[in-house]
Design a binder for these strands. Sequence first.
DNA 1: TCCGCGTGCTGAATGGATTTAGCACGCACA
DNA 2: TGTGCGTGCTAAATCCATTCAGCACGCGGA
Lengths: 340, 340
Amino acid sequence: MGKRVTLADVARKAGLSPSAASMILNGRPDTRLSADAHERVHAAASELGYRPNVAARALRTDTTHTIGFVSDHVATTRFASGLIKGSLEAAEAAGHVVLVAETGGEPEREVEAVSALLDRQVDGIIFASMRARETFVPPLPSRTRIVMLNATNDVHTCSVLPDEETGGRRAVELLADAGITEGIVLLGYDAEAERDVFRSETVASRIRGMSETLRERGMTLARSESIWLWEPASGHEVISRLLAEGERPKAIICLNDRLAFGASQALAEAGLGIPDDVSLVSFDNDELAAYLRPGLTTIGLPHEEMGRRAVELLLEPDGPPPGIHLVEMPVVVRASIRPA
Amino acid sequence: MGKRVTLADVARKAGLSPSAASMILNGRPDTRLSADAHERVHAAASELGYRPNVAARALRTDTTHTIGFVSDHVATTRFASGLIKGSLEAAEAAGHVVLVAETGGEPEREVEAVSALLDRQVDGIIFASMRARETFVPPLPSRTRIVMLNATNDVHTCSVLPDEETGGRRAVELLADAGITEGIVLLGYDAEAERDVFRSETVASRIRGMSETLRERGMTLARSESIWLWEPASGHEVISRLLAEGERPKAIICLNDRLAFGASQALAEAGLGIPDDVSLVSFDNDELAAYLRPGLTTIGLPHEEMGRRAVELLLEPDGPPPGIHLVEMPVVVRASIRPA
DNA sequence: TCCGCGTGCTGAATGGATTTAGCACGCACA
DNA sequence: TGTGCGTGCTAAATCCATTCAGCACGCGGA
């Protein structure tokens, strides 16, 4: 109905010029406007319910209090929606709003999405990926603020990643602390089989953390199984085969919860109980982990916290600090490891 | 580095005034500019890579090619992320971009989110809810375009909902067509127990569809179990209890896949096989449904299609057409119903 | 020669907030 | 009386695209 209240309306009501009103509402420091003027302007603004027009402000100042979130599949698959959730929360807390674009990882759509965001003068862009790895970023004006979320990039070096190395350590420690030091099967990766394969830097870190901890504790893996696609069906298949071959693991470390889910089905079919016969640890803290019976002990991907960090870094006064910013992976203890 | 190209740059390069360039680039119909001028302007624009400044345009025209997506929990839980995905796709196809805000269903945050969107002059707002029901919408300028997504509202009547009634029919038909006409347990809702409870209009429709189909086919339910929280644990608990009481269902209709997940665990523990001993149908087509062994036959929630429809309706030339717009629920046949 | 009219284009206002340069006033001091 | 300076505020330019009113030119007809 009524048109929006403008700064001019506020100024008129306060008996001042728009310039004065602007300076007061923006809390400019070196202005010499009277205390009385401050009061009148604030009163008028709140009485009229004044809200600045973002477009007009953007035109002058090139800031919109809006950030862009470009992802390959993050927003729209359930796997990593926590990244969005954390980002939205942090953005809201900082008085910002988030423009979301999904590109399916296709460079053309990526270019288009970034253009669309720049047209709207976003204050910065977060590039999020489902798979934590080197991610394509279209050419950008050099002053654009960029944070890579669960991703890395050669030229835009401010990255937020899960601390996979420590996560890997934790998984092994959980077993060691439960007194399980042998008969451990690693499900999802085999160093020999995947020697020259680039999977992702984070998987490499995770494996490194596990290996070091194994070595420190004088433990070795009974076996490790390479699996390319970490889905339940593969977990089921591989564990079924192992059991058929006569393997009797004391514990299985699964590189994600979906593998663990498949593994647990295979164990159940073979009449093996969790955790009495076999202990299970895994990674991600997927929804599945809580649904399993018994609940799955897992090293969580801290997606929400990562999303939050990314926004906070993006909005740092001097721009995103370069470097890798690691976020701790929480140890979610449920009931799939047999107590010592 | 270089500043953005403005309309003035294009006009200068084409040897025309900005006015002319503007009219040509916007394809204004009644202008009398020469074919030659058209050519020069388009050439200059594409050579310079001109992209209009959205803020400047917004200031004049009050349109931003940006739509707002306000949800209670949709964006950030995995349950309904398809709604976002569909919306993003349709928006992209229409040359729009989406501002996402999540409110947790709290009215205060909702008001704040809507203000933030209006400050940015969105062309319309989609209100999405996880639970399809009457949803709070803050007061808005009357000309604002609104679509309710998986939600309804008294004053904003353009709604997109799943066609639950037909979905309910389909579930019963699947069983009937497999020759299962008795010993059917409904898990999740009991008409007697929940007579005066308002759960949601969509659940009511689903139940109505099922009841009518049962009646038409001369079938009755062996039993129906009220469950308030549709989570795996409840499904497990109730089915375990039923089995302990000696109930031997031929089929179970679960009101969502998580209940079905719990139910299947209970059946497995009791040594009952799916689908040989008990058939299972359920609703949602959650990720879980595919992970189960055997795969779960389920009536899917068409979230992506709903998101797409919502955006299309929002952008209709004459504004969102009032009324309920139903989207068909797909029947996802897997292997949890024993063939006739 | 002058009017009228169509054609092809431009000038200037507009939207709303920010920001720089500077005006007007009062007081102190010489 | 005039100079200098601090105080409190305002005018006007600016960001960029859109849009209405209207200018200049040329041609046809009287």
